[in-house]
Design a protein around this nucleic acid. Structure first.
Length: 420
DNA sequence: TCTGGGGTCCTAGGACCC
DNA sequence: TCTGGGGTCCTAGGACCC
């Protein structure tokens, strides 16, 4: 038996925790650079604001309905997420954090009134973090996801739904839209629509050979999971990332080599911090950039260049220097770059890695020591405390006009309470 | 004016091996 | 004229997730 705990409208809910006067009112959170709507309160959804709608297109709706608008504040969301996870860990020995706002709980072997348990987990998350959470419990992860979605649809479930008996599951699947099933994306939905498959139940009625042929292994797993046969593994071990990417859209188009390399150096430095945090080395790095594809009248370019570190690298000096060098080769004058990034694609464990006989071990040791010092300073004083000169101001040049304070992670932003 | 960011897994096909 | 059989590894691209 698995539980899925899913935070409702998570980013919008985080903002409301510290702005309770916004409860019951429409709230949206924008993507980085204030580009699109990426979270919406129920009231905002009811106004017809869709996931991914460009901000400038929905501005009339926002102004007419007095929608509260926030730039994304990931320091806040990450911290609130950790609080919810802590509450969840109190209910199950093993928890798989699936995303910033969702976690699976392994309830295998547990004997409990699962319907009551689901409601209790939801209530405790709300009580201890002020975040509304929908908890679905069922024999497979895919069904647990569906159960949690039912909570959002039916308030009378009080945030918890246990779905177990075959006749109950069938009843739900018969009306559950197939495109809302976990693992069925836009492409598959199109194919299914052409075949007349509308509900999750219709999907279950397809022949095994048809499913395997048209939707391959992932679609086949979903098919079995819907029928109550678990085949998506529970993964509570945190594995090191196989790729690490830092990329951003810019507030304005970047046209100078100076600003371009400064931004790339900043991406590279942040990516290196992530690489080091999981104790891994990068053997390949890509630097990529593109112009604004929506401005068709302007000259367009898009592409990237690779750098190889044969022995693997994880020190700031090597990586930032290489990134800048690569950025200089990539940059073409006359173009306005709108987005760029740095990606490590081939990551290996630092443990047991050995340098080639040609390596300059003295320099490597010095670079590694310097990197350790940087890590320590960043940990105590924040990411921007000490920068490479090549990073310029060390900031991402994004638009963030509506960002809320870092209520829970910065001393100066902690809410003050005045008692009269 | 203004359109996000960061991941994983699977598959087919090419390159290569003996 | 006729040109094997069996395997692995790697990569790009597709599809999906939040």
């Amino acid at each position: 038996m698995y539980a899925l705990a899913d935070c409702n409208n998570f980013f919008a809910s985080c903002e409301r925790v510290f702005r309770p006067e916004l409860n019951g009112k429409p709230v949206i959170v924008l993507s980085n650079n204030d580009g699109c709507a990426i979270a919406r309160s129920n009231e905002a959804k009811a106004l017809g604001i869709k996931m991914g709608d460009p901000y400038f297109k929905i501005k009339p709706i926002i102004e007419r309905n007095n929608v509260a608008v926030f730039s994304s504040n990931f320091a806040l969301y990450g911290d609130m997420s950790a609080r919810v996870q802590e509450v969840l860990r109190g209910f199950a020995p093993s928890v798989e954090v699936y995303s910033i706002d969702e976690a699976f709980l392994d309830l295998t072997g547990m004997e409990a009134d699962f319907d009551a348990l689901a409601k209790t987990i939801s209530r405790e998350c709300r009580r201890l973090t002020a975040i509304p959470v929908s908890v679905g419990i069922s024999p497979t992860k895919t069904l647990a996801k569906i159960a949690s979605k039912l909570c959002k649809k039916y308030p009378k479930l009080q945030g918890g739904c246990f779905m177990y008996r075959p006749q109950d599951i069938e009843k739900v699947l018969r009306t559950f839209p197939v495109e809302d099933v976990w693992g069925i994306g836009r492409r598959s939905f199109k194919k299914l629509a052409d075949m007349g498959v509308k509900t999750a139940w219709d999907y279950c009625q397809l022949q095994e050979t048809t499913v395997r042929k048209l939707f391959n292994l992932p679609g086949f797993r979903t098919w079995k999971e819907l029928m109550g046969i678990p085949c998506i593994e529970f993964e509570d071990m945190i594995e090191p990332k196989q790729s690490i990417c830092i990329s951003r859209s810019f507030a304005h188009e970047v046209t100078t080599l100076q600003e371009f390399t400064e931004q790339i150096a900043t991406f590279a430095s942040r990516a290196t911090a992530k690489l080091r945090a999981q104790n891994t080395l990068a053997t390949e790095m890509a630097v990529f950039a593109m112009t604004n594809r929506f401005k068709e009248s302007l000259p367009q370019t898009s592409g990237g260049l690779y750098t190889v570190f044969p022995d693997g690298a994880a020190d700031y000096r090597t990586i930032v220097t290489s990134a800048i060098k690569t950025a200089r080769s990539l940059f073409r004058p006359g173009f306005g770059y709108k987005k760029a990034g740095v990606v490590f694609t081939k990551i290996i464990p630092a443990e047991g890695a050995s340098a080639s006989i040609w390596a300059d071990t003295d320099t490597m040791e010095r670079d590694e020591n310097l990197s350790k010092v940087l890590d320590t300073i960043h940990k105590s004083f924040g990411n921007g405390a000490l920068l490479w000169g090549a990073q310029g101001d060390g900031q991402f040049h994004m638009a963030q006009e509506h960002r809320s304070p870092h209520y829970t992670t910065l001393w100066s932003d902690i809410p003050k309470v005045t008692v009269k």
